[in-house]
């Protein structure tokens, strides 16, 4: 598949190092008192890591076609619907 074997290898190792670094970063960030933002930071780092894995290790970027991306986006969209509409109930339970 890869036209430039060495460049893909470099990329893979680069992503690997970044992922490990992000893991350290998220543990460190959790030790800071950021108030409400602790969760946001943790999730942002996790999402960044997930995107790296999906794009480069799962080859969503480049080689893979649009349809796979569509499947991923659609699944996440429906997950978002589940979370958001459930929370629309939980966040507004108070009445009268």
């Amino acid at each position: 598949m890869s036209a430039h074997p060495s460049s893909s290898l470099k990329l893979y190792f680069g992503i690997w190092i970044t992922l490990l670094a992000c893991t350290g970063l998220t543990v460190w960030a959790a030790s800071l008192d950021l108030g409400r933002f602790n969760a946001a930071v943790a999730l942002t780092i996790a999402t960044f890591k997930a995107i790296l894995v999906a794009l480069f290790f799962m080859h969503l970027k480049g080689a893979s076609e649009k349809l796979s991306k569509l499947v991923v986006v659609a699944s996440l969209f429906f997950l978002l619907i589940l979370l958001a509409l459930s929370m629309s109930d939980y966040a507004t339970r108070t009445w009268t």
Binding site: I81, L82, L85, S88, D89, T92, R93
Partner: peptide, 17 residues
């Protein structure tokens, strides 16, 4: 997928939901 809680109008969900 957007309408499920219409089975729960009297179940005790939020009025806004």
């Amino acid at each position: 997928f957007l309408v499920w809680a219409h089975h729960m109008f009297v179940a005790g969900i939020s009025v806004y939901a």
